[in-house]
Design a protein around this nucleic acid. Structure first.
Lengths: 285, 285
DNA sequence: GCGACTTTGTGCATCCGTTCACAAGTTGGA
DNA sequence: TCCAACTTGTGAACGGATGCACAAAGTCGC
């Protein structure tokens, strides 16, 4: 995966850059059967310890499960679900075990239950108001895809600097000026900001979002954002994706071209398709 | 990181699902100083062993380096470059060591040299013809951003099923029908296919791309594609990104809400901003 | 009610990637 | 020429994620 953790703007590089740091070791991760806290017991304690990689996969399982549910499937085994999700069953079961024990040995999982539990863990039971900043090609695309993938992510605010866009509704929502980020975000309780601006503007936008109280940012701009410790940033970088693919093209050419593909090679990768997934995504055009 | 390796359509789950499998252990990774192969010695052997995570980061370094170069910077230390790229210097040096030893102890790296070498490793020295399939919102955005990020990725073909779009130029390139994928891709030597279709159509499109000889796919559709072993797929899934963010929102709420943020917590994450990057991306609107 | 069969949940070994820490190489100044 | 300061490159330790394999738990048929 390609998950990097950056550092705050305070500067000096620290070990905190570690990929998949942050999650404390599993020590405090035991399901404490203490008094009810309103939610199921242990859920809160457990949620914290889920590895980021597992969280991302849970989202994938969720999608598959919803699909199954729509097709009337009631029960699914780890084997079936894992195949459909493109992971192996052991990993899937381990991922699900972070969520809790909702399967029945000898039978499998109830699709509906699993959906509910994963949604709860992922925090999808409540809506997350989304703001899109930078209404260019991509921003437009996102805004038009009103109410993001899998619902639960209503786009409630759009921002840009272009005067011609001010007040113009895109996907039903009028565009506001960047300067209004603090006010509008507060009013509409935006919890996630999606940055689709050019690289040059991204940091400034991030700063405004942060000062507006937004604590989660999805960054499409090709810059490493500097944000305070308590702000979560995820980055999607098309250039990087393309270049990684390019690398594989090159590697392949190198292997095959000059010294002819080694005869043993095929045997080694039998059945091991090269899918370097990164995440999920929607925008169904 | 969220790199998954899937399996071929052959079905039955296998250990090959392993993340970051495929790359053989470093055993054969030594820089063999044998006879020149046309490229620098050892390059070919080395390229194969670079971890995917490092490849992705190399792309980030490259972007930062190009920026520096444009500003007239000639030399950079691992410390500077790492800070600018949001990783720690040890990791950066290790990443660069996969590329080769192009630094000077006591001094640093020559920006120009590093750019050149990274470009070579990433296979950016040659152009990679790109086809975009599914000219909806996102496809449109990508197509319009003619000649992808960082150049080297010219979009040369567009496909859709909508009759109204046939022949209509988008970003200067006329849209062809899905049925023409094999012919057009062959003619224009497309090496990378970008799938922006709805989920339902994605697999069929992938199949056509594969049969057209395309061996690298960037998939924006929310499906797990089934492809042969020798096809590389990278997936960008907006839904997953959003849901991972949602998870963090929830986690944070759980931490702070009920049992008040633990006093020690801050001390632990000082300086460790939570940036779970995933990849790079451009589309500067 | 019992035994054969299925599937979950997880301890454990393994592997890969990150980080540490230091030897080796380079520069500049005394 | 020698020494101090600096920076790269990398072996080795560490830690987290993956995959295996099996005990536990449940179902089904007889």
């Amino acid at each position: 995966m390609t998950v990097q953790r950056g550092r705050g703007r305070s500067g000096s590089p620290t070990p905190a850059d570690a990929v998949t740091e942050e999650m404390p070791p599993v020590s405090g991760d035991i399901d404490i059967p203490g008094p009810e806290t309103g939610e199921r017991p242990g859920v809160r304690e457990r949620a914290r310890g889920i590895p980021e990689a597992s969280v991302a996969r849970l989202a994938v399982y969720l999608r598959v499960l919803v699909g199954m549910s729509e097709q009337g499937v009631n029960t699914v085994s780890s084997e079936e679900l894992s195949t459909a999700s493109g992971v192996n069953s052991a990993k899937l079961r381990k991922d699900l075990s972070y969520v809790g024990s909702y399967g029945t040995r000898g039978v499998g999982y109830e699709v509906a239950v699993l959906i509910e539990e994963i949604e709860r863990i992922l925090g999808l039971t409540r809506k997350h108001s989304v703001a899109v900043i930078g209404i260019g090609n991509l921003g437009h695309a996102l805004a038009n895809y009103g109410g993001f993938p899998g619902r639960g992510f209503p786009v409630t605010a759009l921002f840009d600097v272009d005067d011609d866009l001010m007040g113009v509704p895109v996907g039903g929502i009028p565009v506001d000026h960047l300067d209004d980020i603090p006010r509008v975000c507060a009013e509409r309780e935006v919890s996630i900001g999606v940055i689709c601006t050019p690289a040059i503007a991204a940091q400034a936008v991030a700063d405004r979002l942060v000062s507006a109280g937004v604590r989660c940012i999805l960054n499409f701009a090709p810059v490493v954002l500097q944000v305070p410790d308590d702000v979560e940033v995820r980055k999607v970088d098309l250039a990087v994706e393309m270049q990684v693919l390019s690398f594989h093209v090159a590697r392949r050419a190198d292997e095959q071209g000059p010294q002819r593909r080694a005869p043993g090679r095929h045997g080694r990768t039998v059945n091991g398709a090269e899918v370097s997934g990164v995440n999920g995504m929607v925008i169904p055009r």
